[in-house]
Structure formats: structure tokens, C-alpha cells
């Protein structure tokens, strides 16, 4: 059964002040422009794409940290798209988020142990002394030992990797059903990345948690994700089982991402495709297929005029001329 269903989700930001509005100079930035997918219980989905593709915005919309412009978000059978914050607050412990920047996601003035224990107290699941005991166990779990010593430290006394472990411990103490991890290791020292990802996977297995891993790094997606969705300019252009997609990309953009990444599939034929230019301005999305100005396979007519829809069953590709068929 699906823990999360997202249907035609859109987030359009309006840019421009009152004067711009009067002069009709308002820009509408389509950060997320019609994203649909399902996430099963215990499954991990990676959202990959360049910066500006709308991955992070999608993640925040799912958790209602941003208000969606339109579409539907169904969490465990409950439509939360327009749910009021007060009601949503009771669901929030079940869906957690981990942020990219571990330096910014902790209160600088609070002891990290207390930061980990606090959610249990706030949600009335434990008294402070019980929460403290659980937080000490959690610190041990995430490898911050001796736990008693770490409990009393302030974030400034920890490294980036250690802070991210604290953030993970704080999210995991609530035993969530869904975790959105927004580039959780991109700002962490390379030597620590694998162990932090492993930690997340351990928790995932233990709690039978579902996970959305937002990343620009295909190697991360390959390590953790059952399925991967490739985003381009606010839309999913390809979605399917990770391993299959990396070996046999269906969308030219997926192929280009694989080509741009350092070798991650040993012995595999590496596509040599190179794309030109940069991701377009999301306030001026190209006509037809939004990838056509950069696509080496664009036919110059159908691709320019008609927007391709996601098609297929387990592997879905939004391209008029998919590479797999």
C-alpha cells in the first residue's frame, strides 16, 4: 500500500512587487510544475536533477512546509493538501525531514542532547527524564559516544558530520513512517558520507520507513534508492527502478546526467552524450518538451510544439523518442 501519493503537484512563485504587478511585469517561477508519483511503504525513491530542477521544493511541498499551488498530496490515505496547520501538527511526527546544511538546522543555543529529547516531550510521548534516557540511547545509536559527553555539547562544538548525526537522531527518535532527506550528505566530508547513508538505511529497515532521497549525486541514488525519479525544470522526466535506469536510461536527460557523473557503473558502457547550456529559467519554461533546447535528439518540430507525457508502467519516460524503445 502506498504511504504517499502525489498527484499533479504544482508550486508557482510570483515574483515582483506592487509596481511590477501594476506594470504587468510579474514573473511566475514554476519551481514545481506537475509532479505525480506514488511511494510504497518501506520503499526509497531518489529525486535527482540539477540545481533548479525543483527537487527540494517538491520535498518541502510533500511535508507541507510550503503551500502547494495546486495538486494533491495523500499521506497514508489522508489528503493533507489543504489540511490546517493545527491538524497537520499531529501528523508531522510521522513524516520527518533532514536538511542539507547541518550547520543551519540546529538551534545554536541548545544542547544537542536536549534537542534530540525535546520532540518526545513536545508530542507528549515521554517526560523529560524518559526522553533524556531515549536521547542518550539515540546518541549511542548514531555513533556519538560517549553519549553522556555529547549530550551536553552545543552544535558549535561538533563537526558537520556529527551535527548531521544529531539531526538524524532527532528525526528518528519519533520513529517516522516517511523521511524526506534533502541532500543529507552533500555538505559532509566525503569520508563520512557512506557511514551516514548507511545509518539512514539501518533506521529505514528497522522502522520499515519510506524515504525520499533528494540528491544531485547518482552514486547516492544508486546506493540507497529502489526507484529513482529524474526531475527537469519542475517535472519528472523519467521514473523507474534505479539500477535498470542507470544501465539503460530512457530519457536523453537521464543519459546526460549519467554521462556527466564520474563512473559509477563498473564495466558498463558509458554513454558519451554531452548536453549544451544550462537549465532554463523556470519563469520561462520552453514550449513543447521543456528539455528540447538542450536535447541533441530534438526533431525541431514535434519536440518544440507538443509536451510529452510520462508513459510506461514500471519505467515511465516523458519523451517523444525514448532511448529504450
Amino acid at each position: 500500500m502506498a504511504i504517499l501519493e502525489v498527484e499533479d503537484l504544482k508550486k508557482h512563485f510570483t515574483q515582483g512587487d506592487l509596481i511590477d504587478r501594476l506594470l504587468g511585469r510579474v514573473r511566475i517561477v514554476k519551481a514545481v510544475d506537475g509532479v505525480s508519483f506514488k511511494l510504497n511503504r518501506g520503499e526509497t525513491l531518489a529525486l535527482v536533477g540539477e540545481s533548479g530542477s525543483g527537487k527540494t521544493t517538491t520535498g518541502k511541498l510533500i511535508l507541507r512546509l510550503l503551500e502547494p499551488t495546486s495538486g494533491r498530496i495523500v499521506f497514508d490515505g489522508i489528503d493533507i493538501t489543504r489540511m490546517r496547520e493545527g491538524e497537520l501538527r499531529r501528523l508531522r511526527p510521522r513524516m520527518q525531514m533532514i536538511y542539507q546544511d547541518p550547520y543551519a538546522s540546529l538551534n545554536p543555543r541548545m544542547e544537542v542532547g536536549k534537542a534530540i529529547a525535546e520532540p518526545l516531550v513536545v508530542h507528549g510521548r515521554a517526560s523529560w527524564s524518559e526522553a533524556r534516557r531515549e536521547a542518550l540511547e539515540m546518541l549511542e545509536r548514531v555513533g556519538l559516544t560517549p553519549a553522556r559527553d555529547f549530550y551536553r555539547r552545543k552544535p558549535i562544538q561538533l563537526s558537520g558530520g556529527q551535527r548531521q548525526r544529531v539531526v538524524i537522531a532527532r528525526a528518528m527518535i519519533l520513529k517516522p513512517d516517511l523521511l524526506v532527506a534533502d541532500e543529507p550528505v552533500s555538505m559532509i566530508d566525503v569520508s563520512m558520507r557512506t557511514s551516514i547513508l548507511k545509518l539512514l538505511l539501518d533506521f529505514k529497515r528497522e522502522y520499515n520507513m519510506s524515504m525520499i532521497m533528494i540528491t544531485h549525486d547518482l552514486a547516492v541514488a544508486r546506493l540507497v534508492a529502489d526507484r529513482t525519479a529524474v526531475m527537469y525544470l519542475g517535472k519528472i522526466v523519467e521514473i523507474g527502478p534505479t539500477e535498470d535506469m542507470l544501465h539503460n536510461p530512457g530519457h536523453p536527460y537521464t543519459e546526460a546526467l549519467i554521462a556527466a557523473a564520474p563512473t559509477i557503473v563498473r564495466g558498463a558502457r558509458k554513454p558519451s552524450l554531452r548536453i549544451r547550456g544550462e537549465i532554463a529559467d523556470p519563469s520561462r519554461i520552453p514550449s513543447g518538451c521543456r528539455f528540447h533546447p538542450r536535447c541533441p535528439y530534438s526533431d525541431g518540430s514535434k519536440c518544440v510544439k507538443e509536451e510529452p507525457q510520462l508513459a510506461g508502467d514500471s519505467r515511465m519516460v516523458a519523451c517523444h523518442y525514448p532511448l529504450t524503445r
Binding site: R92, S105, L106, P119, H123, V167
Partner: peptide
């Protein structure tokens, strides 16, 4: 970010 994180914790 840290206040948004607190909101996401409910």
C-alpha cells in the same frame, strides 16, 4: 533553516 526544521518536527 533551524526554525523550519522545528516546524517539520510538529
Amino acid at each position: 533553516v533551524f526554525v523550519e526544521a522545528l516546524r517539520s518536527l510538529g
